[in-house]
Simulated scan of single mutants.
Amino acid sequence: MKLNIQNETSRLKAVILGIAESIGPVPSLEDAYDPKSVQHIKAGTYPKESDMVKEIEAVAAVLKKYGVKVYRPKVIKDYNQIFSRDIAFVIEDKLIEANILPDREREYEAIQHVLYEIGEENIIVLPEECHVEGGDVMPWNDYIFIGTYSGEDYSDYITARTNMDAVIAIQELFPNKTVKAFELRKSNTDPKENALHLDCCFQPIGKDKAILHKNGFLIEKEYQWLVDFFGKDNIFEITKEEMYHMNSNIFSISEEVIISEKNFTRLNTWLREKGFTVEEVHYSEIAKQEGLLRCSTLPLIRE
């Protein structure tokens, strides 16, 4: 398999989509990785496996409708394997293994059958001190946008997933690209004040547009850079409530076609007004784990 990812929106040819089978029992509060999951565990509203299977299989059906080759991880009993974007990401023709939370290493092992097709000469393992997850990394043609957190209290945040060591390593791997890092707002306790990954508060769509949430960025100047880069008229600014419901975490099949959550009424209306085809799916149960459509997909080949 020859990998090719230059950006977020070119026509998708092959992708790894997570799975929701055999997800295991509701996690204990100590085992939850983000404040939104904690909230739903406490409220007794944590999603049921049957609902999540239904949601993710609806996405598989849309991808197949557009002729996308869909790979799935091997099922590990009683183990959450929905968010395939966390475990690896592709830039150009290289797959980079994410250095994720140690508890989640088995997720990467479950895609070995795909890695075998890619070949180890095209797989990069970053040094141990580089922490990175795919939700923070966005190739955008000549740029690579990366969400990070460089505060001295980095280790205090289970929600801080990508560090500056990883940003520097990625810049060294792709010297022909401009790597642009953005400091994200982190909270272990308040999901409305936490941008878990860059795709929780920003995502490019189409050829020249973007979804953005100002409060997800710690440094206003960095947020403003994105506004200037895409142009104010090309940006859909989401509210704190919409960020909480993951409105920026949709997924592009192409520059014209986007998979979005059915309840994102304001966003979906705007997308259609801008000429996009919007494939709506129910994804609100999976969203309770602070991840949505982009988080569940690991693109391998775009045209």
Results as ranks from 00 to 15, higher is better:
residue 22 S to N: 15
residue 46 Y to I: 13
residue 158 I to E: 10
residue 121 E to W: 03
residue 132 V to C: 12
residue 300 L to W: 04
residue 130 C to N: 01
residue 73 P to L: 08
residue 229 F to R: 01
residue 281 V to T: 06
residue 40 H to N: 15
residue 98 A to P: 02
residue 11 R to H: 11
residue 31 D to W: 12
residue 114 V to Y: 00
residue 275 G to D: 15
residue 273 E to G: 03
residue 38 V to F: 06
residue 114 V to S: 01
residue 79 Y to N: 15
residue 157 Y to H: 08
residue 112 Q to F: 10
residue 99 N to E: 09
residue 60 A to Q: 11
residue 161 R to K: 15
residue 196 L to C: 07
residue 189 T to F: 06
residue 149 Y to N: 08
residue 147 G to N: 02
residue 61 A to H: 07
residue 294 R to T: 12
residue 114 V to R: 00
residue 144 I to V: 14
residue 115 L to I: 10
residue 63 L to R: 04
residue 199 D to M: 13
residue 62 V to P: 00
residue 63 L to M: 12
residue 124 I to K: 00
residue 119 G to C: 01
residue 7 N to T: 06
residue 209 K to Y: 10
residue 227 V to N: 02
residue 123 I to H: 02
residue 204 P to S: 13
residue 163 N to G: 00
residue 67 G to F: 07
residue 206 G to D: 12
residue 294 R to P: 01
residue 105 E to A: 11
residue 201 C to E: 04
residue 139 P to C: 06
residue 124 I to H: 05
residue 143 Y to H: 14
residue 181 A to H: 11
residue 97 E to V: 09
residue 294 R to M: 10
residue 269 T to C: 03
residue 62 V to K: 14
residue 187 S to P: 01
residue 129 E to S: 13
residue 126 L to N: 05
residue 175 P to Y: 11
residue 219 I to C: 12
residue 231 G to H: 12
residue 84 S to V: 03
residue 285 E to H: 13
residue 286 I to V: 14
residue 219 I to L: 15
residue 35 P to K: 00
residue 257 V to D: 09
residue 102 P to W: 14
residue 246 M to L: 15
residue 37 S to E: 14
residue 135 G to F: 12
residue 42 K to R: 14
residue 151 G to C: 13
residue 201 C to H: 05
residue 38 V to D: 11
residue 108 Y to G: 01
residue 37 S to G: 13
residue 230 F to Y: 15
residue 1 M to V: 04
residue 170 I to N: 01
residue 169 A to Q: 09
residue 293 L to Q: 03
residue 239 T to R: 00
residue 266 R to C: 02
residue 130 C to R: 05
residue 136 D to E: 11
residue 115 L to F: 04
residue 150 S to N: 15
residue 9 T to I: 11
residue 15 V to L: 09
residue 261 E to C: 09
residue 236 F to E: 03
residue 57 E to F: 01
residue 121 E to S: 07
residue 192 K to M: 06
residue 88 A to N: 07
residue 4 N to M: 02
residue 128 E to R: 12
residue 8 E to R: 07
residue 296 S to M: 15
residue 166 A to Q: 08
residue 281 V to K: 03
residue 69 K to V: 11
residue 51 D to R: 04
residue 85 R to Q: 13
residue 211 I to R: 04
residue 155 S to H: 03
residue 4 N to K: 14
residue 166 A to F: 02
residue 276 F to T: 05
residue 157 Y to L: 10
residue 76 I to P: 04
residue 85 R to D: 08
residue 175 P to S: 10
residue 104 R to G: 06
residue 288 K to P: 06
